[in-house]
Write a protein that binds this DNA or RNA. Sequence first.
DNA 1: TGGTGCTCCTGATTGC
DNA 2: TGCAATCAGGAGCACC
Length: 282
Amino acid sequence: MEKKRMPELPEVETIRRDLEECLQGAEFRELRIADPSVLRERQVDPATIAGRSLRAVRRRGKYLVLDVGATQLVIHLRMTGRILPAGHAALPVGAEAVRRRQQFRFRLATDRGEWIFFDTRRFGTLDLVQDADAWFDERGLAPDPLLDQAAARQWFLVHAAGGRAIKTVLLDQQVACGVGNIYADEALFRTRLHPETAADVLDYAQRGALFSAAVQVMKEAIARRGTTTSDYLDLNGNPGVFRRYLNVYRRAGLNCRVCGQPIQRIVVSGRGTHYCPTCQAM
DNA sequence: TGGTGCTCCTGATTGC
DNA sequence: TGCAATCAGGAGCACC
């Protein structure tokens, strides 16, 4: 079954770069919340962004941060969130738009046009905070592995412990910020680790190798503008092409590119997990 | 305290 | 052809 995939760190970074190119320096006029459930933290009034310019578009893990000075918009796209200019071809129109109006979750009016947070499954979130980094730290979010690789690596070495499956640990944003299901599976394949291996069985060298593999696979995905499956497109309508380079993710039943044995799919912590039982033996 | 599993949500797909 | 069931996913929270 081909389904929509959520943007993970490489896709979020691709979106961040596109937004920065389109919107940096733009003047915000209004933030209109169409679906109140999108808004969680509200440290500042949405009205305060009016007349202010977008200073920067930042990212930490899978969170996007629109920096408007005293107000910071922290956006998580979750499963299906997308930020698109009004009128973009991917947005529903007419009766379909009316039927799906709740999926147009908030709108940002700027002097460069209106931008829409469109979110099919409505899992995405918006937090209005005064200091995004402090807000992330309060939540125990790990350092971003692409922004400060040394700090993130050290953090991972210390926190990737306990009896949990290493796949579960990789997906824990308080341990490895930004790693999602696709890149966790690929990093485990590259380091020949079975996804159900207990984290505390791994020594420092193995944890370090796993962290490096996760960073490397995400860097490669960014270079190819993310991992598109059915319908993820960037702002210019271009697909990410990293999927064709995946070794295990969503390749269940297909032959391993290394040993030729069939890739298997299991569920670890409720997440579909793909691995080669020969290359990644327990 | 650490770990597990449920919940949220909806479009696409599958099976009958 | 149409309907119901199933699946996918990240993060937060309740529970053990």
